[in-house]
Structure formats: C-alpha cells, structure tokens
C-alpha cells in the first residue's frame, strides 16, 4: 500500500468527519445567507453577498454557539464518566470502578512502561496535568468558544438593535441579555439529552461492529464492554 493510501485508511474517521465538517459549514454559510437576506428584504434592507455574510458576526455567532455546546458536552461527559456510572451502558465503567482508579490500572508512577507517553514517565506535575489533559483541553475549548460566541453575539445583537433604532449594549451588558442565554441554553439542552440518550439507549440497543456499542450478543446487564 502506498504511504498516501495508508494515511487515508489509518485516519479515515478523523478525515471523514473533518471533511463533513467543511461541507456542512459551507451548507450553513449558503443557507444562512439566504435566511439572512430574506430577513433583510422583509425589513426593507439591501440583501448582502455571501462573502459579506460569512464575514459577519451574525454568521460567527451561529457557528460558535454550536461549537461551544459540543465542547461543553464532551468536557462534562469526560469528567462525569470518571465519577458516575450507568449500569449496562457501553459508555460507562463497571459500577464499583468510580473514581480515578489505581496507578497500576492507569499505568502511571512506577507502573509506567517504556512506551508510555513522556509526561507519564516524567512524573510530578507533568503526569498530573497529562492525566487530565483530555478534559482540560475540551473544557478550555468550551470556554474559548463560549467567549467567542459572546463577543460575536454581542456584535450581532447590537447591529440588530441599530437596525431597529434601539440602544446598543456593552459586552458585559450583553452577558445579561436574554439573547445570550437563550442561544446558550437552546444548544446545551440538546447536548444533555443526546448524551443521556447515548448512555441509556446503549444498555438495550446494539450496533454490530461499533465501539460505541456493546457486542451484539452481550447481556443487557453487562456494563462497559465495547465491541
């Protein structure tokens, strides 16, 4: 197999979702511009070009409010599944395994191996940080994207206020506006439902061959075995 072909095969999941992200983002830009222009016409304003639309905070906040909720979802799920279990779920550890687990199970400290990541072998603060790096990075991206959505949402809100000849608000003022919290909560609620569904539905339902599911023939009572 050539190097290029093996790269594609080895990274099919990351590449496929990266590609679908770009395609759907273009879809959002096209449909968002059409929707925005329909609103402009209703308000007796000039329609804008797609380039104007994708460089507007209106597009920016629509993108970022969805990003932030996805990273909140993963951040919460990563941390919650350390401490909370769901009996029978493919997404859960066995009841009784709640918590950080032993150094032996986690292959840290004296149980680190020659091929363990460098920060695991280093010990001290580096191992402490690396042991939480997935949750920390997801949580950090959530905070960044939520902050970005607040800045773009503020600008978009103010341009609507101006179009309606209403007073504009400061960024801090926008954080107290219903618009900001409505955008946040409407995305958060769907993530919580989706994550809860995944945890609970995977107790009784199967997807043959998916690591997100238990093997088809495994008992409903069995927790955490993926296949």
């Amino acid at each position: 197999m050539t190097a290029a072909r093996s790269f594609v095969k080895d990274n099919a999941l990351g590449l496929a979702f990266g590609g679908m992200f770009l395609v759907t983002l273009v879809g959002q830009a096209i449909s968002g511009a059409a929707d925005y222009n329909a609103q402009q016409v209703t308000n007796g304003l000039e329609p804008v070009s797609i380039l104007d639309y994708v460089t507007s905070s209106s597009f920016g906040v629509d993108v970022m409010e969805n990003w932030q909720s996805e990273y909140l979802q993963f951040f919460l799920y990563i941390f919650a599944t350390v401490w909370l279990v769901q009996r029978g779920s493919a997404e859960s550890k066995e009841p009784g395994d709640e918590g950080m687990e032993s150094d032996e199970e986690q292959r840290v400290g004296e149980h680190a191996r020659a091929d363990s990541p460098a920060w695991v072998r280093a010990g001290g603060w580096r191992t402490t940080v690396f042991s939480r790096s997935l949750g920390l990075v997801m949580g950090g991206i959530f905070l960044l994207t939520w902050a970005a959505s607040s800045v773009a949402g503020w600008a978009a809100y103010n341009s609507e206020q101006l179009a309606e000849k209403q007073d504009t608000v400061s960024w801090a003022g926008y954080l107290g506006e219903a618009d900001f919290w409505n955008r946040s909560f409407q995305n958060w609620q769907s993530e919580m439902l989706a994550v809860g569904s995944m945890a609970v539905l995977s107790v009784y339902l199967r997807q043959r061959g998916s690591p997100e599911s238990k093997p088809v023939g495994v008992s409903h009572a069995e927790t955490g075995e993926t296949g």
Binding site: F7, D10, N11, G14, G18, T55, G60, L144, A148, V151
Partner: peptide, 30 residues
Amino acid sequence: MRGVRRLYVAYLTVILLGVAYVTVLGLMGR
C-alpha cells in the same frame, strides 16, 4: 504516527483559528 499527529495538529489549529476569526468579527463590530 506522524500522519496522525498532523491530523491532531490540524484539528486543534482549525478550532483555534475559528475561535480567533469569530472573536475578531465580533470585536470589529461587523
């Protein structure tokens, strides 16, 4: 693993560029 690392860096780059781009749009009041 070198190709995988490139994909990892690409994902983080896209996320951070997206955040920076939207923040700038907002700060410019566009």
